Simulated assay, not measured.
Amino acid sequence: MMKQLAVAAAALLASAAIAAADPVLGTWQTEVDDGAFAHVKMQPCGQKICGTIARTFRDGGEYQSDTIGKMLVRNMEPVGEGHYEGKVWRPSNDKIYIGKIDLEGNSLNLRGCVAGGLICAKQTWKRVQ
């Protein structure tokens, strides 16, 4: 039992170290969608990456949306060379789409797709921190 616990702890630490070094981690600003934009905090969720809405803004400045704390980017898995695949949620229509991310420096190109990835809507997010 103790040996199994030690192996599990070592595996958890190794996956946390890998995820902690991932360049997509941090806070990103979305594009304006339906008159508002958000800051999304990208962080490890197990061995994958998830993004939670941390702050919301519109023309009048920051406001308290009911989407704060909700997961926008879900279970993104690194597939190599700054590319990720998983799911994304669009709050304005409450739908979940096939998600793809391409990281390019301080820009994150995010796509939400339907029809097996044939039809996609795109946003480019900018790194906040």
Score class of each variant (00 low, 15 high):
residue 2 M to C: 12
residue 4 Q to N: 12
residue 7 V to C: 09
residue 7 V to F: 13
residue 9 A to C: 12
residue 10 A to L: 10
residue 11 A to M: 10
residue 11 A to V: 12
residue 12 L to T: 14
residue 12 L to G: 13
residue 17 A to C: 13
residue 17 A to V: 06
residue 19 A to H: 07
residue 20 A to P: 13
residue 20 A to Q: 14
residue 21 A to T: 12
residue 23 P to S: 02
residue 27 T to Y: 07
residue 28 W to H: 00
residue 29 Q to K: 10
residue 31 E to K: 04
residue 33 D to F: 15
residue 35 G to Y: 07
residue 36 A to F: 15
residue 36 A to Y: 12
residue 37 F to K: 10
residue 40 V to P: 01
residue 40 V to D: 00
residue 41 K to Q: 11
residue 44 P to N: 12
residue 45 C to N: 06
residue 47 Q to D: 05
residue 47 Q to E: 15
residue 47 Q to I: 07
residue 47 Q to V: 05
residue 47 Q to A: 05
residue 49 I to S: 01
residue 56 T to R: 05
residue 57 F to A: 03
residue 58 R to W: 12
residue 63 Y to F: 09
residue 64 Q to C: 08
residue 69 G to Y: 09
residue 72 L to Q: 07
residue 72 L to H: 07
residue 72 L to N: 11
residue 73 V to T: 12
residue 76 M to D: 01
residue 78 P to D: 07
residue 81 E to L: 07
residue 84 Y to K: 07
residue 85 E to P: 12
residue 87 K to R: 14
residue 89 W to C: 04
residue 89 W to S: 07
residue 90 R to K: 10
residue 92 S to I: 09
residue 95 K to G: 09
residue 98 I to C: 15
residue 100 K to R: 11
residue 102 D to Q: 15
residue 102 D to V: 14
residue 103 L to T: 02
residue 104 E to D: 12
residue 104 E to T: 15
residue 107 S to W: 10
residue 108 L to I: 01
residue 109 N to V: 03
residue 110 L to V: 02
residue 111 R to H: 08
residue 112 G to M: 04
residue 113 C to Y: 01
residue 113 C to L: 03
residue 116 G to R: 05
residue 117 G to V: 01
residue 117 G to Q: 02
residue 117 G to Y: 09
residue 118 L to G: 06
residue 119 I to Q: 05
residue 120 C to W: 03
residue 121 A to G: 09
residue 123 Q to A: 00
residue 124 T to A: 02
residue 127 R to P: 00
